[in-house]
Nucleic acid binder design. Sequence first.
DNA 1: AACGTAGACAACCGCCTTGTA
DNA 2: ATACAAGGCGGTTGTCTACGT
Length: 220
Amino acid sequence: MVHQEFRKGPWTEQEDLKLVSFVGLFGDRRWDFIAKVSGLTRTGKSCRLRWVNYLHPGLKHGKLTPQEERLVMELHSKWGNRWSRIARKLPGRTDNEIKNYWRTHMRKKAQEEKRAAASPTSSSCQSSLSSSNNNNNHTVNSVHASKKVGEDHQDGEEGYSMDDIWKDIGMLEENILPSTSWEYSSEPLWMMDEEESKMLFPLSDQCFSCYEHGSAFLTG
DNA sequence: AACGTAGACAACCGCCTTGTA
DNA sequence: ATACAAGGCGGTTGTCTACGT
């Protein structure tokens, strides 16, 4: 077996497009297979993570709403750090997102407590008040959802932005797709034998044409 | 204007679980 | 029943941006 070098670090728009296309074709299960046939030099794990945390059509992007924050608090007090379990109760949110939110929140809280302990005159209720105020401010910030993505344009200006991708994915979800995104392929292609698909997509040329087909489908 | 800091988020790592041959 | 591969999950780290000084 030849040891393959896998790419690491941030995903490019090209990679995202490729991944979206191939998940559309093969479904979001066989990640190692998708990683191979797509020609992405990423591990299956990496592909899955990117899909689950960023590209999945059902995801909400942007800050948690105060309602969601309350729910996270409530569920965390019940279940502890069972992020995936908590995430299941917040449609469109990922375990990673909630984990990140919680981490930030706890750090802030810890700092406030430390400050409160340092200056005994300031009551703890003040600190908790300020933290809840902070949380409420998040709603305003939700306007900035997917800001970062917009900034990604810088290296692919004339290309197809992730905003566009999400728009298209959203449209596909609403207008075309019954329930799962990969059903845009009328054929259950992911049922095909691995050998069979190797013949279909032996190298990236074929992969690319498939990817182009996929992105053409996505863009309309 | 420059610099430092905190917050937000993406991504990786390692362990555990589950499915399959 | 068992070994192996793949997927899932939680913890952690790195990077970028906004904001305050």
